[in-house]
Design a binder for these strands. Structure first.
Lengths: 203, 203, 203, 203
DNA sequence: AATGAATGAGCATTCATTCAT
DNA sequence: TATGAATGAATGCTCATTCAT
């Protein structure tokens, strides 16, 4: 009789995948995508290299999956903040602060997700990732404009610009010097710059 | 009579360096720094590998030299615009437009210069490069504040933010899709966003 | 059921290491350490280069391992003789003879172990190797002095000198001419020279 | 009319050879034979690589010539001492001391001449070099035996043994540690050991 | 004679992927 | 299913020697 995977087997298979993904993520957080080899992944998961290929068809696909997991988590955290209560003004500030603080706390990972080149497939995912961030900011800005808190403007661009500002001001320098200390005032300055670009102010 | 290197010989030697640099730049423009190997460089220049090492002591140093050549050219072009005549407002707009247009015309190169990691030496140069851009913007902003065209604010951050905006809005997406067409209106939108963040406006 | 490495597999793995070590030793015996490259080792073992690196992390470490194997074997053989029964006089003679005979039988190898420089790691091992020989001779001499068979003298130097004599008289010339024939009388002469330097004689 | 080298030209040619040899020797004294490349030799002599090949047909032949120059100088210095006045006993002691002291003062060179492997041609010369030393010691010993200062024995071996003792006790350790300090007492110990092996002593 | 740019085989090392067991 | 040994193309770099000028 033909072999049929039981529920139990499926579960085992799934838990193996998760184990591998977790091991891979640990490695990436420690040394970026480039530090992950199929050999050291298998090793840290306590299985054979060949077995890794039972769960992931290639290193590229493994990377894409990891990238999606990590970025979806990050995005959902910011999204949570963005759809919370408060005025658009308050929520924008909070979203920027959350994005910034998370980048500060896991520098290697932020760098890997935002900048580190891996392969063309990852670049495609990376664009989606950055667009997802921008979409969140865009939603807040749109609402702010509707509520006349922000002045009318191309919100697509404004949202993308905010992502660019945070990446340039916070994440890029973090990769230069391991000991860089990002002060909270820097986050405030970013917030103020963005708010200024978005709001109507009077003399 | 002893052979003495003539001017012609010297010129030839120099022209070989330039040939190699050009071949390397072509390759980088086509596939980024990562696509350039000493073997394929030698091959595309029609010479032997060993010969490349007569002109450049190591791949790292070759890369640094190329990086400096390309970035110094870019920076000097923007600087030219920035110290030109006109109000800070006009010059800022012009600097942004020039930076943007150049990025649009050589997409792969812009990506390589702004984003692509290569090695630690290049990262050091890249930081200088981005700071050079920021310094140009900062100077305009400082002057604009002095002339009361722009509102007082941390100009370091404002300048860095502008670099981040352009990188995010223009360079990153350009590398994804070879056919992306950047409209001039996009540049205008960037200008407006930045100006809004910098200026005092009245209802 | 999951695949588990059997004893047989382990044995095979170990036997591959031994195969590689043997191939390497053959090559070294034929042409010295300098004649061994990772490529020709892989080739002579009938495997791929990459595979060699599964068994030895680097060429240096492979060399160190081979050096230790060969020298430890040599030293233990002499040590056996040195701690055997008989007077110090007899055991010294026997140790010299054994050292000499072994050198005669594997000329290239003796040269490689005693003289051929490879890299700093090997030089460190070589020093240990020569000191191990000297320590054996020293022990015999110390005992001989205690038993008044030998005259009191700096035994460190005497032991080192004996190593030098054998190296110079036997090993060095052997590498010059493949057909050199070392007569047993030469060994006897060495023994007599050493004994003379060590003993009290009367007119 | 055919070009004929004049005396002047010949002299120039000869002086060039000497310049090259001197430059090469300086380099060898600083870093051993292995540190000398045709490129850095040409460079330090201020001429082109190709020109070096006008004076020396190959690197091997250049090395052989340098080796001969250096070793002949060393040998002649010891020979001077050996044929000087004094009893064989005194002259042997003096020859050992001179050999030892010279080795101490130019460690890198002594190592290069006595041990450093270069190529088969050098090994042949090295054997001659060591035999030349031995020949000097042999002459003294022969004379000492004739004068009944030394006891009858195979003088070939005795002479070779002395060379081996000095190489092992003095030159080998010098190469291990750049800061090794050879005490004069060590030389005295060598002398005493050798004398003991050669002389008739009474209780 | 002198130049020095050019050669190119050679070397140690890495790592994603395969496949016989 | 799982294993893990094996693969081998790829890479940066060196250096004695040649030869057109």
């Amino acid at each position: 009789m033909a072999y049929r995977p039981t529920e139990k087997t499926k579960t085992r298979k799934e838990s193996r995948r998760i184990l591998l993904l977790n091991c891979a993520i640990l490695q990436i957080n420690a040394g970026g995508f480039s530090s992950l080899t199929m050999d050291n992944l298998a090793n840290s998961a306590g299985i054979a290299v060949g077995t890794v290929y039972k769960y992931f068809d290639s290193k590229s696909l493994l990377f894409v999956e990891i990238f999606k997991i990590l970025t979806e988590k990050e995005v959902s955290i910011i999204r949570e903040v963005a759809i919370g209560c408060g005025t658009p003004y308050q929520r924008l500030n909070e979203a920027i602060a959350t994005f910034s603080r998370r980048a500060m706390h896991s520098q290697k990972q932020s760098y890997a997700l935002i900048f580190e080149p891996v392969n063309p497939m990852i670049e495609i995912e990376r664009l989606k990732y950055r667009k997802a961030y921008a979409a969140i900011f865009k939603q807040i800005i749109d609402e702010g404009i509707a509520k006349k808190e922000f002045i009318p403007q191309p919100t697509d661009l404004a949202a993308t610009a905010i992502v660019g500002i945070i990446a340039e001001v916070l994440i890029r320098p973090l990769t230069q010097d391991e000991n860089t200390h990002i002060e909270n005032t820097l986050i405030e300055k970013i917030q103020e710059f963005c708010i200024r670009a978005l709001t109507i102010r009077q003399l």
